[in-house]
Design a protein around this nucleic acid. Structure first.
Length: 492
RNA sequence: CGGGAGGUAGUUCAGCCCGGUAGAAUACCUGGUUUGGGACCAGGGGGUCGCAGGUUCGAAUCCUGUCCUCCCGACCA
């Protein structure tokens, strides 16, 4: 009653906004294009961040922190990268404000405090990091360098959307330096696997691993690998990228090392990142018209317990039982919340926690107490069943795993049902307009054709899947020969 | 950045065309009855009408500027 969600069918974009706002993940702010991540949304991000951070450390990486500001001369050193980002950079030109002589209580930029050299606010940190690595690397013994940083970056986007594209966002960026090309390529692929593992096993979202075409490649990279996920409206979303940078940055920043034969060589580099955009992907992939549906492994609250009682006496008895159950759940490492707030009635709480996507809800009333039972409701399927209070912690531990798996399977079924082959242009356009999803189709391999297809249909090549089967065919647009199908989709 | 829509109570919105005491629902506070899917009754508090100028005796309302949001488009490694 108090919180209505626009249905997906009515307006998918509005549905998404409603979930983010009413699910209390984020708020709009007074700054154009920037959002406030609210405590519930941040708790979700923290769970994602912590899981990823552990995975990075398990693969030998360490965290560090580099400056927010990048001197313009450093930023422009790697030309392609600089050009790629130039249009969306925020730039600091002054370092002081002063009282406005014309208007009391107002401030103006002090024209005498102009910076000698402008500072670019990092849209990504390759420049400042490679300028630093130059000082860290002399010998092959200094390699590899396997550093990650958790940071904010700024990209001055024309059109923003909560989590999916904001002017400032949080992410992690890994930047590694290696003695050989083989090692750098292996690192690039390893981190792609880490991302795929995380998104599939923690976020319950199946992804396709692939390589970007030249058009979609990171500026400054030799190869860009990506994981692509499919949202419920049939649009694709890039969930993470991993770049093999070759020696481009080493050459731009003159980073050389002496190898075992005492020969000077440029180092080989990678970079890889995922951002708070993943939160947007999570929302769009799993949720329904009643609200968010969060996978148990990253849900801030995994189990909420709602008491149903008449009078203090019943509440006391129920609370006593709940405390037993709560401590069992906590002992099993389950994140549980007991909502005994007296101002809200049970029905209201049920709706509220459905909105916020809590995977499992327990309801306990006087009736249940007599029978030593609790009602267990799962968010993803809305199924409810009575379970004996004695084994409820074990039951829930298993149930959380089932929910996690069911959410992945559901998303995977959806993706498979929405991945189609197209062999003719008409077929391609028909699928795009009527069904969306991924389309596997032949392409002649040229940028011009990719641009032309984008121009006509707004679909782009999301990736060339890794281990893509080779198959003779003809480009859907030009009819020229092709050796493999690539994955097209309209994308976020 | 172009086109469209919007900003009035914590929230959703009416009022604006045609200037004259700022409203409703909900939320909130107090008391009571309630509590198994968004309770009910009674009483009460709360708004510089996004911000800044202007017109006017008088502006939420008319004019100008500006900020923020949404949708569509362009753009988006």
């Amino acid at each position: 009653m108090s919180k209505e969600i626009t249905s997906r069918e009515t307006d998918y974009a509005q549905w998404y906004n409603d979930l983010v706002i009413k699910g209390e993940l984020a708020d709009y702010s007074a700054v154009r294009g920037c959002m406030v991540i609210k405590p519930y949304g941040f708790a979700l991000w923290e769970n994602m961040r912590d899981a990823l951070d552990r995975m990075f450390k398990e693969t030998g990486h360490v965290n560090a922190y580099f400056p927010l500001f990048v001197p313009k001369s450093l930023f422009e050193a790697e030309e392609k990268n600089a050009e790629g980002f130039a249009k969306e950079c925020a730039v600091v030109t002054h370092y002081r404000l002063k009282a406005d002589p014309a208007q009391k209580g107002k401030l103006i930029v002090d024209p005498e405090a102009k910076l000698e050299e402008e500072l670019v606010i990092r849209p990504t940190s390759e420049a400042i990091i490679w300028n630093t690595y130059k000082n860290w690397i002399q010998s092959y013994r200094d390699l590899p360098i396997l550093v990650n940083q958790w940071a904010n970056v700024v990209r001055w986007e024309m059109r923003t959307r909560l989590f999916l594209r904001t002017a400032e966002f949080l992410w992690q960026e890994g930047h590694t330096a290696h003695a050989t090309q083989e090692e750098a390529v292996a690192e690039t692929k390893q981190m792609l696997d880490v991302y795929a593992d995380f998104v599939e096993n923690w976020m319950a979202l199946p992804v396709i691993k692939g390589v970007k075409t030249e058009n979609e490649r990171f500026a400054g990279a030799v190869d860009t690998y990506c994981i692509e996920a499919l949202m419920q409206d049939g649009k694709a979303l890039q969930a993470g990228t991993s770049h093999f940078l070759g020696q481009n940055f080493a050459k731009a920043f003159d980073v050389k090392f002496s190898d075992k034969e005492n020969k000077l060589e440029y180092v080989w580099a990678t970079s890889w990142g995922v951002s708070t955009r993943l939160v947007g992907a999570l929302v769009m992939a799993h949720s329904d018209d009643q609200g968010l549906i969060l996978p148990p492994k990253i849900a801030p609250v995994q189990v909420v317990i709602v008491p149903i009682y008449k009078g203090d006496e019943q509440k006391t008895m129920i609370t006593k039982k709940v405390n037993e159950i709560t401590s069992q759940l906590k002992a099993a490492g389950i994140r549980v919340k007991y909502d005994d707030n007296e101002n809200a009635r049970p029905g209201w709480k049920f709706a509220e926690y459905e909105m916020k996507g809590v995977p499992v809800r327990l309801a306990i009333g006087a009736r249940d107490l007599e029978k030593n039972e609790v009602e267990v409701a799962r968010r993803d399927t809305k199924e409810k069943r009575m379970v004996s209070a004695d084994g409820v912690a074990e039951y829930i531990a298993v149930l959380l795993g089932e929910i996690q798996a069911a959410m992945f399977d559901k998303a995977k079924d959806f993706r498979e049902a929405n991945t189609r082959k197209a062999d003719t242009w008409d077929e391609f356009v028909q699928i795009l307009d009527n069904q969306g999803g991924f389309i596997a189709a032949h392409w002649d391999g040229t940028s011009e054709t990719e641009d032309a297809i984008k121009e006509k249909t707004k679909a782009t090549i999301r990736c060339i899947p890794i281990d893509n089967p080779q198959e003779e065919g003809k480009c859907i647009l030009t009819g020229k020969p092709s050796v493999q199908r690539v994955l097209f989709a309209r994308a976020y």
